[in-house]
């Protein structure tokens, strides 16, 4: 995660002092200070609102001309002003779904290990490693993906997949010579969202009171049964929230995907084939597009991405919050 999560067990009670200073005098300074800092705080609200307004304005031309129907049309040819954005919607969703499918079993394993199984001396360094994974910039994942992951996939993984699962259309076709394509992008996305999904899931699991586990253990359950009976049912919504958060991250991730997906506005059943996402399209073409209509179309795609990630973020927050309400939850989330 990009931010440290600091949990405090007790909310510090707030003292409302200072009222008795009398009118004017020192209360005046307090008022000024409070309002000044409130203005700074309002900047977060203001910026978010300004983003929504600016993005809508930037895409006005395209919304007027095409509405939102162009999201499901398949033909994309900016030179002839044919804007069907479905290839990018497809690429965005499919690459993120691949990432989720790969990351869920691994991230849950990591989360359970870190919160339930790992011995005390191992938890801290491992958590630190997971946090470092989150701190590495996207561009570095992209570089590594281009020159290490993609060639390795091309040489080792793609042939195996074709041999074993080649009867599925997913794994047919000849990969690009540099190994870049939908699957490569999905894998690097999985690596990038792993820390998010794992650390949020670990946090919700750790918030389950110890007594729950002790109760089940005392009845003679094994460790796994304890986790299954005492921990998991209480944190289902939190884990779903973690996954939703990871999905939102994956949809909006730009640099590594741009470097690995091959950037072609095509829809192919094969996961080896190059594709493009909304974010990669914007990264490639936004500054180069001098045509006003084209810029506007890209801005509208950005607006759609904005709306979707916004909804996913809010949904994930609500889901994780629900866990905080189980009786006797250890930490505020």
């Amino acid at each position: 995660m990009h931010q440290t999560r600091i949990n405090h067990s007790k909310e510090v009670p707030k003292l409302e002092l200072g009222e008795h200073h009398g009118k004017g005098g020192r209360n005046f300074g307090d008022g000024v200070f409070k309002w000044m800092s409130a203005v700074f705080a309002a900047s977060a609200v203001f910026l978010l609102a300004a983003m929504v307004i600016q993005m809508t304005r930037a895409s006005a031309l395209s919304i007027q001309r095409f509405g939102f129907g162009f999201l499901v049309e398949r033909d994309w040819n900016p030179v002839q002003e044919i804007f069907g954005a479905f290839p990018f919607v497809f690429g965005t969703v499919v690459s993120s779904v691949i990432a989720l499918l790969l990351v869920i079993p691994i991230a849950l394993g990591v989360a359970i290990f870190l919160s339930e199984l790992a011995p005390g001396w191992l938890t801290k360094p491992l958590s630190l490693l997971v946090e470092l994974l989150a701190a590495i910039p996207s561009i570095v994942y992209g570089l590594w993906g281009m020159f290490v992951l993609a060639p390795w996939l091309l040489k080792t993984v793609y042939p195996i997949l074709t041999q074993t699962l080649g009867f599925l259309p997913l794994f047919q076709g000849v990969p690009q010579g540099n190994g870049r394509g939908m699957l490569a992008a999905g894998i690097v996305l999985a690596i990038m969202i792993l820390p998010t999904v794992a650390s949020v899931s670990r946090d919700v699991m750790a918030s389950v009171p110890k007594g729950y586990r002790e109760g089940v253990l005392a009845l003679g359950a094994t460790r796994w049964e304890t986790i299954r009976v005492a921990v998991l049912p209480n944190v289902v919504s939190g884990i779903v929230g973690a996954i939703v958060l990871g999905f939102g991250r994956a949809l909006g991730e730009t640099m590594a995907v741009t470097m690995l997906i091959g950037n072609r506005a095509e829809i192919s059943a094969s996961l080896f084939a190059p594709a493009a996402t909304i974010a990669s399209m914007i990264a490639n073409d936004y500054s180069g597009a001098s045509d006003e209509l084209y810029l506007s179309v890209l801005a509208e795609l950005g607006l759609v991405l904005f709306a979707v990630t916004l909804i996913l973020n809010i949904a994930s927050k609500l889901l994780v919050w629900r866990v905080g309400r189980i009786p006797g939850a250890e930490r505020s989330l």
Binding site: V45, M51, A58, G252, E253, T254, S287, F306, L312, I314
Partner: peptide, 24 residues
């Protein structure tokens, strides 16, 4: 509200902040 907006902002894909500043 401020807390909520700050949290939402941290989840906005960074490329969109690029578009925002570009237009602004």
């Amino acid at each position: 509200l401020v807390r909520f907006c700050a949290d939402v902002m941290s989840g906005v894909p960074s490329i969109l902040i690029g578009i925002f500043v570009y237009t602004l």
